[in-house]
């Protein structure tokens, strides 16, 4: 293999250069979750499950495809997906914590 970049960009190859982190990519913040079940019902890969405490739990984090539909449909801002957007990551790193 040569080191020259190929002419056409291949999304699959680019993705392979940045492997997804092995840690949980979906996180539920239990203090804010009210257990409406919207994130569980509309997850296309059944990543989330309702727990016995009537709150959503991450059951199969390895199945997550990062469509962000759970985070966007959560009415309580209780679901977050890591690697949201680059802009959001920059904002997160700016350190707004503690100012408000």
């Amino acid at each position: 293999m040569s080191d020259k970049p190929e002419a056409g960009r291949n999304a699959k190859q680019e993705k392979a250069q940045f492997p997804e982190p092995e840690t949980t990519s979906v996180h539920i913040f239990p203090e804010w979750c009210k257990g409406c079940g919207i994130c569980v019902a509309f997850c296309p890969k059944q990543v989330l499950e309702m727990g016995k405490d009537q709150k959503a739990h991450v059951a199969h984090p390895e199945k997550c495809i990062r469509c962000y539909l759970c985070a966007r449909r959560c009415p309580d801002f209780a679901v977050s997906v890591y690697g949201h957007t680059r802009k959001a990551e920059e904002k997160r790193n700016e350190g707004t914590d503690g100012e408000k």
Binding site: E31, W32, F77, S80, E89
Partner: peptide, 17 residues
């Protein structure tokens, strides 16, 4: 760190849930 990035625009320390 565990909240979605929208929390930047929220008064999350006082008023939530």
């Amino acid at each position: 760190a565990h909240l979605p990035y929208e929390y930047i625009y929220l008064r999350y320390k006082k008023k939530f849930p």
